[in-house]
Amino acid sequence: MWRWFHEWGSPRYFYARSGRLLPYLAGLTLLLIPTGIVWGLLYAPADYQQGHSYRIMYVHVPAAILAQSSYAMMAAAGMVSLIWRLKLADAAMQTAAPIGAWVTAIALITGALWGKPMWGTYWVWDARLTSTLILLFLFAGVLALRQAAGPSQSGGRAAAVLAVVGLINLPIIKFSVDWWFTLHQPASFSVTEKPAMPIEMWAPLLAMVIGVYGWFFWVWLLRLRQEIREREVRSEWIRQRYQNEF
């Protein structure tokens, strides 16, 4: 177990091994997402209440799910880099942050585009919307601190502490936002559970959810490998790798 951990913690070993995963992740993404989009846009039946506007769900829901778990993954990488001081984990955290921030922004914007035809307004201070907005601010904080602190490893550690404190705070934030909302809830609309979806509707959703996870890991790995290349540019192994290629 420990040997495995040490091996994977070394950038060189990780770089050599992770390259083999790339085609699988790319394949999964390029297979599932186009399938999900075509299926969701063209073949899934229209909703009896919302008509065709509900098709936004197939991009909104996967983005919203991914937004939360990408924060958790980023903070987990931060925790590893704090405890074991792995350079690789620091790079993983730094590369996950911008992707997660983009995904959260997408979840918010597609949600607004869905809200306009559904509720007649782009934005309402609904509990879920508000906590997603705060999640975006959390990402922004980690990104801003990482940027301001520069490329040094100490800057990475401060950002890692911020990410971990944020992860611990996330349930508290969600909880307080929920209570704040229940007190202010207007009666005019509700986003409570809809009746169960038929299989023709949720099958494309499932394809999209798995697809965006594949996409996330794919982009993350691409960025992480680029980050490793840039950080290790002075070391022998990466130069040799490229000397043979050129």
Partner: peptide
């Protein structure tokens, strides 16, 4: 966290805002 970074106010607000919500 922002000590010695010479960015001050705005950075601090961005970092802290989510935590001040509860």
């Amino acid at each position: 966290m922002t000590l010695g970074l010479n960015r001050g106010g705005a950075l601090l607000l961005v970092i802290l805002m989510p935590f001040l919500v509860p």
